[in-house]
């Protein structure tokens, strides 16, 4: 059973490998990732792919909006990590 903090850490690892030129240590959880980092639609597809590769978690297209902020990521992904 992963805590929300552990889920956040795993998501952060993925984002750090995608937003390579950004400082991801200062991400504010309740603000949209796009407003804090240089992320575009291809980066979000990368996040989806890395969740699948690293954690076997599928994010269907209709759920992409759940990846908007770190908080929404954790809320959406925690049950999937712990399924």
């Amino acid at each position: 059973m992963l805590t929300n903090e552990e889920v956040r850490s795993k998501v952060l690892d993925i984002i750090a490998d995608i937003a390579l030129d950004d400082d991801v240590t200062t991400i504010k959880d309740d603000i949209a990732l796009r407003d804090q980092l240089e992320l575009d639609s291809m980066d979000f597809l990368d996040i989806v792919m890395e969740l699948k590769k690293r954690h076997k978690i599928e994010v269907p297209q209709e759920d992409y909006s759940h990846l908007a902020s770190m908080q929404s990521c954790v809320d959406y992904l925690a049950p999937k990590f712990n399924a």
Binding site: A19, L20, D21, E38, M42, D43
Partner: peptide, 8 residues
């Protein structure tokens, strides 16, 4: 070029 663009 930045690292992200190189990776892409």
């Amino acid at each position: 070029q930045p690292k992200k663009m190189r990776k892409r």
